[in-house]
Nucleic acid binder design. Structure first.
Lengths: 227, 227
DNA sequence: TTTAACAAAAGTATTAATTACTTTTAATAT
DNA sequence: ATATTAAAAGTAATTAATACTTTTGTTAAA
């Protein structure tokens, strides 16, 4: 049972965002480079402190919107990292979130100004503290999400081909999905609308563009990917 | 980016455990009754403060082992609850865990002494603050766990029948599984060992007792239940 | 103007898993 | 003996997943 609040030791609480984006056929992570010791030159996730008057969700959202200029971000709690010695600078409890953002649409100047950079998930630089583990767990969580719901709305451009969507899933699960079976499965969900436009950059025949139906079709709890 | 640590406002951080047990064919939750206002008479989860030198996992484990007298508890992080006004007594960030414990084996005297009581999950009393929501999310998390791994090792007695195990799953998912299909599926996992003893209390023919194989057979990431 | 090339899109055949049932079994109680 | 009970085993139909092959529409080269 909780005893009197006054005699309890308070803790510093931070959030760290694992920010996923998709660009040039690659799943990427938004990272900052440390300019001071310790771990100078190493990279870190997009973190910040939690203010007294906000929830950890508010904090994570505030940090990310002010960095990217985007609103309406998809974010989800991942896990709390709280080993007493996880941060050499002092005892900090960190709540990790992951976010999905559209690299095309975010404010590049703002991100550049803060010195942030996009890194391919399968070719990350050394990360500080336990941030490597955080990214790992976040990717696992994203896989869970992508196996239940169709992700892509937040990562792909508004109009995309099934090949692009499949490649995104290839990146997330780090495996090659069979083109025929993937399209059959995805279309059976009835969540996409085919446009009368084609992308002819990848093939002579051309691949139809699709959009997500604007209704909340994401709401299927059915399983998409078995993993 | 994290600025200097010294000027940051610290937070009170607590843990709350959603403690699941299984008894008399029912899934139950261990709860405390509040003896003081506000919300006097209402019930709460098994909570406690996080000490400066321990992780939130350590704190959750410490609180639960000291209450139940059990060690080697299965626990898993659920989610952080951190709305600024969630606790009328002050700003407290709470990390929720769920735990699976064997009601038979825990220290009843200790639990009685603290005034805790087991409640059936589908007939809970009013819970304080956001504890109702916590229990709800924890149950959802338990369902995720039970759909991937065979739960029961921590909830059932060492020797149990497939009917008991099925009933546990019925409780967790709040639906009736087909007896034949359930046994076929479970036995195909090859995680149980059949004993040469039968339980004849439920039928004339009698149902074989089973135990979990002591090897780490829980490790299948394959799917057990589709939900 | 044909033909080769390309990936999209559609189709197929096989296997595996799920689901809804029915039948048999072993013991007890009438 | 016979009816009863739930366990345990079995079956048949359906659905889903997988590994392929074929067709299509367009472009670029012969």
């Amino acid at each position: 049972m909780l005893q009197q609040y006054d005699f309890q030791e308070p803790h510093l609480v931070a959030i760290d965002n694992v920010v996923f984006g998709y660009e040039q056929g690659q799943l990427k992570l938004l990272l900052f480079q440390r300019t001071i010791e310790p771990s100078k030159g190493d990279w870190s996730l997009v973190g910040g402190w939690v203010n007294p008057d906000e929830s950890v969700e508010d904090a994570a959202y505030r940090v990310l919107t002010s960095l990217t200029g985007l609103s309406d971000l998809f974010m989800e709690q991942v896990e709390v990292f709280s080993k007493p010695d996880r941060d050499p600078g002092g005892r900090v409890i960190s709540v990790v979130f992951y976010a999905l953002i559209n690299i095309q649409e975010h404010n590049h100047q703002l991100v550049d100004h803060y010195g942030a950079k996009w890194w391919p998930v399968n070719d990350l630089p050394p990360l500080i503290f336990d941030h490597g583990k955080m990214a790992e767990v976040a990717l696992e969580k994203l896989r869970m999400k992508a196996s239940r719901d169709l992700v892509g709305r937040d990562l792909l451009p508004a109009e995309f081909t099934l090949t692009q969507l499949r490649n995104l899933y290839n990146c997330i699960f780090m495996k090659e999905f069979d083109p025929g079976n993937f399209r059959k499965k995805i279309l059976s969900l009835n969540a996409l609308r085919r446009l009368d436009k084609k992308d002819t950059s990848e093939s002579k025949k051309g691949a139809y563009y699709y959009t997500f139906k604007n209704i909340e079709t994401d709401q299927f709890t059915e399983r998409i990917i078995n993993f």
